[in-house]
Amino acid sequence: MESINLNRLAYFAAVVDAASFTQAADRLGITKTVVSQQVARLEQELKTSLLVRTTRRVEPTEAGRLLHARCVMILREAENAFAELAQTNTEPVGLLRIAAPNDYGSYTLAPITAAFSKKFPNCPVDLVLADSRIDLVASQIDLAIRVGWLDDSSLQARRIGNFRQLLVAAPGIVKKRAVTQPGNLPSLPFVANGALREPLQWQFTKNDFDRQTVRMTQALRINTTPAVLAATLAGAGLSVLPDFLVTNEIKNGRLVHILPAWTLPAGGIHAVYPAARFRPRKVTAFVEMLIEEHKRKDGMRSR
């Protein structure tokens, strides 16, 4: 097969996005005839039908949907490359789409994106918060932040920080019962985080060799971490929450760190990218800012 004309991919993607040859032509600034001819030639080159034309809309065939998903990625990579090469300096430009879980995104990432937008006004940020995993390619995400433990994946990742998990409760909860060791915990109500695989079972470690696995007694089960925090602050029970979410609450006395001599498994904070040879400057600049913020906070904790 001869090499594909990339302009035809752009015309085809525009038709699918607009569901119309006429609207695609208007967006591209060319005639409808040119768009129709180029898409027809693309179908001839690929020897397959890509679009179904009706009186009202243009819909992609199954082959068309598969090609469109690839086109979006190819064309976006090309746009990023041209934007990067066209710059006379290293300032990031272009829309930066970031995905992150609700808790980390709301409490840590949102302030950093605000600072990034102020520093680089030509690089607007679209922050997508969701506790479910997002398909980075299909959702056109430049960068995802994943908190915890990475699954095996074809995605590229960089560790940017760590976090501790802390067992906490409102002061009124711990005043009612003495808690001196993990074995005391099942007698207390627990707010389970439904976003976790094993929200009730936890392993506590002391002095690197004393380990105790405890199964908590569920009082509530909530599927988002910020809501788990809110219920814990309201006195619904103990819960395990990441340190970046509860450090200030512990300092101001709204929460108490339970069994501070015992530790729970720590986790990592990772920047995850779609696999690509080219990394846009907007992505690397944001990750650099995020790493610096983690170093600053780690330095404050160590003092």
Rank of each mutant, 00 (worst) to 15 (best):
G161Y: 07
S154R: 04
F190C: 05
S49H: 11
S49V: 15
G268E: 14
N80W: 14
I145H: 06
A115D: 04
Y107N: 01
Y273V: 05
A78T: 04
L136P: 01
R41M: 11
G64M: 04
F12E: 05
P182A: 10
Y107G: 00
A219S: 14
F82C: 11
Q37T: 08
V147G: 04
I222Q: 06
A81L: 13
P260G: 13
V39C: 10
R221D: 01
Q165V: 01
N193I: 11
A115I: 00
P274G: 02
K251L: 07
R281T: 14
V287S: 03
V272Y: 04
N223T: 09
M73P: 00
S302T: 10
I30H: 03
S302F: 07
K295D: 13
R41L: 15
T232L: 11
V228H: 04
S153H: 07
Q203V: 12
Q140A: 10
K295N: 09
A78S: 05
R146I: 11
R133F: 00
D135K: 10
E77V: 06
E198G: 03
G253S: 10
Q212E: 13
L238C: 07
D298W: 11
M289K: 03
L241H: 08
S154V: 05
I160C: 01
R164P: 00
G237H: 01
P111W: 06
N207F: 02
H270Y: 15
L188I: 15
S3W: 02
F278E: 02
Q140P: 00
A69V: 13
R197T: 15
V174F: 05
M289L: 15
E292Q: 09
R296N: 10
R159I: 01
P189R: 12
L75K: 11
I134A: 05
A276S: 15
D243Y: 07
K297F: 10
A157Q: 08
W149R: 06
R76Y: 01
S36Q: 14
F286I: 07
P92A: 06
E45L: 15
A19Q: 09
E288T: 09
A63F: 12
T54C: 00
L188F: 06
T113Y: 02
Q140I: 02
F163I: 08
V34Q: 15
A144E: 02
T205H: 03
R65K: 15
A261C: 03
R279T: 13
A227T: 13
M216Q: 07
I160L: 10
N207C: 00
F116M: 05
E43D: 14
A261P: 02
F21D: 10
G29D: 13
E43I: 12
V191C: 12
A99G: 04
F204K: 07
P92M: 07
Q165E: 08
T113I: 03
Q23C: 02
G64I: 04
V214S: 02
Q87K: 15
P260F: 11
A157S: 12
K297S: 09
P92W: 03
D142A: 05
H257K: 14
